[in-house]
Design a protein around this nucleic acid. Structure first.
Lengths: 224, 224
DNA sequence: CGCCGTATTGAAACACCTCAATGCAGGTGG
DNA sequence: CCACCTGCATTGAGGTGTTTCAATACGGCG
């Protein structure tokens, strides 16, 4: 069943009746590049699963500074919120398609399905794990190491033709706002990695990992 | 009932029978200053509630770099883990007392008590919110702003004799490892805030917020 | 008193940022 | 089809904030 396949992480092991009902009440929304799925001041209307495209989760401050919290790829669940209001915005990098599940129905069904609730919690746990990784990267790593952290992360997501080719859907500015740098520093850091023979860049959006082990080592945010 | 009072955030609204059983199987552990409650390579044996003292959550890398992820005060729940193994260590700053709940019993009872499970999820949500705040602070803020972020955070916790007096249980090095700075930079940033008349430091561990509004503004990691 | 860990302060080095110029590719209009 | 514009990426030069290394001060405790 294509639907459940697609939303495997969210619907894994969930009763088909529940999944069917969610499918029925869901709507598909299309997003233009740079369009908002929702913003950080709004109340949660639904939860979402990304079907196509790449989106980013970001938080902006009154001072106009922007921190990107993560990038999401097809199959990812977004819109996790605890108090019902988002503390971040979600915008699309590319043309994108998302499936929206009304929050009330989703809550009701996840109360009815322990498995669905467990899946949501599992996803919440991985979101937290990711945030902690990012804290470590921003707190302890130099520019070129942070770039490797991002490259390793995207590689792990398995987008791109093979496991050592990374396609960057985002601009240098987006990368900079994710890693707490400026886009010039990101550009120079990538140049440096390229000069060192660790990566190769046939174009600005494509990175070949020549020495994947070095990328993983430089980007590592774990204890071992 | 003192027990439930103390663990209000975790046991709020939870059936007394459940709370009683948890109390019965719990053990109290004492921690020396700088002692480990558990480390990032261990399997989760239990979940914990801090009774006395101040502890820190930290992650260390193979390269010997340390990132502090947060500080916890009495009443805080720690040991949240998702896959059963910790990705961080918890150490005590001061002499401390924690109550340990064996993980198996805790899991069984939280399966039995939707309210307890909801409380754990709520705490998990606030942990995530905190991590996101820290990402923003590390990615977008200068040294003196990051210090204000920490001061505002501790102030909000309400430790200290009055709301504008902040007692720092941690050393400058701990603060530095929390904010992604060096201890010298922390020291200079605090000096600058003091020179600007925003704070006053009668001693290294005590900070009076002369202009709390300025501290909050400089340390703000939210959109408004 | 003298030791030791912590905190502060200073000077110099360095990483990153800022500002500015150039290059490059895609899209539009002449 | 080419000229031109526009947005993004790169590169350079100079400035700034943070780090590094080193010296000094402070405070608790033997």
């Amino acid at each position: 069943m294509a639907f459940a396949d697609y939303y495997g992480r969210l619907f894994e092991g969930v009763d088909e009746v529940i999944v069917g009902e969610l499918e029925r009440v869901s709507v598909c929304r299309s997003l233009e590049p740079h369009g908002y799925l929702f913003d950080q001041y709004s109340q949660a209307r639904g939860v979402y699963v990304l079907e196509q495209g790449v989106i980013m989760i970001e938080r902006s401050s009154a001072a106009g500074r922007r921190q990107i919290l993560g990038f999401s790829y097809p199959g990812d669940f977004v819109g996790l919120t605890h108090d019902g209001s988002f503390e971040y915005s979600v915008r699309s990098l590319t043309q994108a398609l998302v499936r929206e599940f009304p929050i009330a129905v989703f809550r009701r069904l996840s109360d009815a399905s322990p498995q669905l609730k467990a899946n949501v919690n599992r996803i919440g746990g991985s979101v937290l794990a990711h945030a902690i990784d990012q804290v470590f990267a921003l707190g302890q790593k130099r520019a070129h190491e942070r770039v490797c952290y991002l490259l390793a992360e995207i590689r792990r997501r398995g987008v791109g033709p093979d496991e050592n080719t990374v396609e960057l859907a985002m601009t240098r500015q987006d990368i900079a706002d994710y890693l707490g740098l400026t886009m010039e520093t990101v550009s120079r850091a990538m140049r440096r990695l390229s000069d060192d023979g660790i990566i190769d860049m046939p174009g600005p959006q494509t990175v070949n990992l020549i020495e994947p082990a070095a990328v993983l080592r430089l980007g590592s945010v774990k204890g071992d």
